[in-house]
Design a binder for these strands. Structure first.
Lengths: 243, 243
DNA sequence: ACGAGTATACTTGTATACAAGTTATTATAG
DNA sequence: CTATAATAACTTGTATACAAGTATACTCGT
């Protein structure tokens, strides 16, 4: 029963978080990073002992993660589903789905304020790059898309976002930490792509938007493989992944 | 502190349910029906006393309902959001969104088994009509759409469905109970529409599918007003609804 | 050696107790 | 009568205890 020595999720993002939230975020990161292998059976008691909290916050965490489709609650224990190629594609299906929907709404309303806000976030991202702060960059990246989605004030689209966001956040976080120092051109491509996205919203041009969305998707797809390679190689959870 | 004498949610659907699930379903029904007015502040302690259970299952219920966007958890108490015209439209936005997505996947795969399954459900619906069993009809109606969505084996689309389903179920349940005896032509229109839907899947014809989806939406929209009229009139939550 | 039945060590779901913090109320001073 | 301070009555979050059920392991009989 080894201690979870270091936390994967940024401590500073948990300043006012409850124990339940902390466990949720930490477990999520450990599952998505592959540190907890898919197929693992999680027990409330063991987790409680491991994280030095009672079962209450653990239960809460497991419910949340089950909602995010990262684990499956069964009679005896929670079975880790994890994230493989298929899941990443599916998440991006959903993102494409809701962001194209959002765009159709955006073309009908005044987006001046939104564009302003997005530009601000973009500048923040550039500062994050300047100071090589991968976590901050990931945060702003997620915030960028959240800002767009929230702009149309659609509570059930927000609901979908709320359920996909944490997984996206963790995924981007891990991805950024890996690539931030190596490939600068990758990062600049992401920034350019976000500029393109802002352009699409400003000019309300569907073509550009679609282009931007798909390019973003391709960018991510590229990183997916690397993430598998690096994180999954150490843990030898290589059995169930064929193809 | 009046007792919740009769339950709105069908008892037989809760045969193996835990206390938490019972409370969840019951609260959901009471919120959607308008019996618990939007704006009400729910306290865990009061609910626990009211339903004669401890706070644990109540907490669980509130988390679930917050995820379904029916309440908003805040510092002191949970604030009931409820369902108004806007929310119903939004839910159907989501349904349109995911069902069109699902259809695009369905046209690429063999749907023979699915069509068979859907026909079975359709016949069940007709039996439910014959015996004037509104609850059973609602159940099969929801199952119909769930079966279609599950057919493409997309875990994150399923996730969205999992979050919208309970609200849809409750809504359809209430709607059916109201209309089942009065308007027989309404019911038969629903059945015909489902037939159309099956046809669309069988022939993989986008036109028919869109037509079917929108007609279904119109059907529901018609019922929305009635639901407001009937359920909301008694409780005098008429204040915050202008237009 | 092997199968049946029992005992034990798990599991989750629920109730209850306590701590920390927030709000509302009440009492007191001006 | 009003403003302010203190107390009392709430709130949530967490820990702990217990009950009911399930899987595993072990023992006993054949």
């Amino acid at each position: 029963m080894k201690e979870p020595t270091d936390s994967l999720y940024p401590e500073k993002w948990l300043s006012k978080a409850s124990a339940g939230e902390r466990v949720t975020c930490e477990l999520r990161m450990r599952i998505i990073s592959g540190l907890i292998e898919s197929g693992t059976i999680l027990s409330e008691n063991k987790l409680a002992a491991e994280y030095n909290v009672s079962r209450s916050p653990i239960r809460e965490a497991l419910r949340v993660l089950a909602n995010e489709n990262l684990i499956r609650l069964e009679r005896m224990g929670a079975i880790v589903i994890g994230i493989k190629e298929k899941e990443v594609e599916e998440i991006y299906d959903v993102r494409l789905l809701i962001e194209t929907f959002v765009f159709e709404r955006l073309v009908k309303i005044d987006t001046a304020d939104l564009v302003r806000e997005l530009n601000k976030i973009l500048e923040m991202m550039q500062i994050a790059i300047k100071y090589k702060d991968a976590d901050e960059f990931a945060y702003q990246d997620v915030l960028f898309h959240e800002t767009i989605i929230r702009a149309i004030d659609h509570s059930y689209i927000s609901m979908i976002w709320n359920n996909t966001k944490p997984v996206m956040e963790s995924f981007i976080l891990l991805s950024m930490r890996m690539h931030f120092n190596e490939k600068y051109d990758d990062i600049s491509r992401i920034v350019n792509n976000h500029k393109l996205y802002i352009d699409a919203i400003k000019t309300k041009d569907r073509e550009i938007m679609i282009q931007s969305l798909h390019q973003n998707f391709d960018d991510v797809q590229g990183k997916v493989d690397d993430l598998w390679m690096s994180q999954r190689m150490l843990s030898k959870a290589w059995g169930q992944e064929k193809e």
